[in-house]
Amino acid sequence: MPCPPSGVSAKMGPAPGPAARGREPSYLGYVWFQLEEVGTLRILAIVKQVPDSNAAVKVTADGKGIDQTGLKLVVDPFDEFGIELAVQLKEKRKDVAEVVALTVGGDKAAEALRVALAMGADRGIHANDPAFETKDELFYAAVIAAAVKKESAPIDLIVTGKYNIDLDAGAVGAAVAEYVDWPHIAAVTGFELAADGKSFVARRRIEGAEEVVEGALPVVLTIEKGMVEPRYPSLPNLMKAKKKPVALLTSKDLAVDAGLAAGLQFLSLFPPPPRPACKMVPGEPDQMAKELVRLLREEAKVV
């Protein structure tokens, strides 16, 4: 995994002021903070619905998309690490007020949101609008950032997978951090939030070593496999999740820079070409060696 962009990591250090956290200091918010001694931290987990990694994916005839018929969709396994981390923080600490799960997607994505709610998220945000459909992770991140900014009470921590298994670009966490103007730590393998609920120590795996970084909230973490073991949502919790509140947001609710949507032009999808049949060279070892050299020279033209 690449290191965070230098512009982002440079921001690591003392907590940025309220303005840098992208929130308007409001009188109401201030009063709330004064009265409540516990439960002020808000964690947002980004949840993307993706095709199951075991599913056989078929490209549609027009080459523009993936055939959705009978396609099994799941919560991105890396995003599950983020949900699990958020829920564990809430279970372990008294100062976590709530875990919010956010998804961007069509009607079916509500099912992914429900898994997150069944795993322990308190409420959901579903950004559902044809205008949000994209294969561009920067635009996807811009929609998420717009939803984060729209939250009336500020979010302190955003967690998501280090990449999503559908587009594999790994840009979501970093781009969200950029849009909300927070630091970002990529491929996190450990996270300790201090008792004050502000400063933290995070660990991340880099080539041949582990990097330890310090910082203060707010921050965007993208989670590496193995940091936490996601729980199965139990069936009673799946049923209870139906009753948890989910806010629906459309393009009317979210101000997303339209120019971003045109940033990446999507041309076509095609399956990789089938591997050509393997040619077996028969005979005794010395004959096989001679024939192999002849084939490499005359047919493959590599020697």
């Binding site: 009978g70 799941v74 509500a110 069936l235 049923m239």
Partner: peptide, 22 residues
């Protein structure tokens, strides 16, 4: 699912099945 029986299931029914399948 040769006959798209999945489409006759409610989302929460599918979700229960997928959870147990996992």
């Amino acid at each position: 699912d040769f006959l798209e029986v999945d489409s006759l299931l409610a989302p929460d029914e599918r979700q229960v099945r997928d959870t147990v399948a996992r």
